[in-house]
């Protein structure tokens, strides 16, 4: 069983966690789309802190003996998931930036041609 002082500490921590996320959301410093996973993690943490018996049962299913270890493993698992999600977001943004840069390069060339007044140069024949 988790000692009651620790439970209180954890509950306060979870509340702080939510306040911080909501604060960021309110100030539009975080995109709701990317925060859903964080909110979900918070809900799971909250439920587990309020009903530690659930935590124990889940942990026993996986064959973990110590409650605190179970909590850590769950927390690490969530972090890994969020990190992976972040990597995938970064990769997708990378792709988008790449096509934007290419597009800028092509537009830049077009502007140069228009400014020079010879829009009949390379590649402009039958678009």
């Amino acid at each position: 069983m988790i000692p009651s002082t620790l439970r209180i500490t954890l509950i306060i921590a979870v509340v702080c966690y939510f306040i911080i996320i909501l604060y960021f959301l309110k100030n539009r410093a975080l995109n709701l789309k990317y925060t859903l996973l964080w909110l979900l993690a918070g809900v799971v943490m909250g439920v587990l802190v309020i009903f530690p018996e659930m935590l124990q049962r889940i942990i026993r299913v996986f064959g973990i003996q110590s409650n605190m270890n179970g909590l850590f493993i769950i927390a690490i698992g969530f972090m890994l998931m969020i990190l992976m999600a972040l990597t995938s977001i970064a990769s997708r943004q990378n792709m988008k930036i790449r096509s934007l840069v290419q597009e800028i390069g092509i537009l830049d060339k077009r502007i140069r041609e228009l400014e020079d007044g010879h829009s009949d140069s390379v590649g402009e024949r039958d678009v």
């Binding site: 790449r98 840069v101 290419q102 800028i104 390069g105 092509i106 830049d108």
Partner: peptide, 15 residues
């Protein structure tokens, strides 16, 4: 074409 950011050979060729 003048790419404002270095994309690496793959991104450049793709442009």
């Amino acid at each position: 074409l003048d790419l404002p950011i270095n994309l690496g050979i793959g991104g450049a060729v793709q442009a």
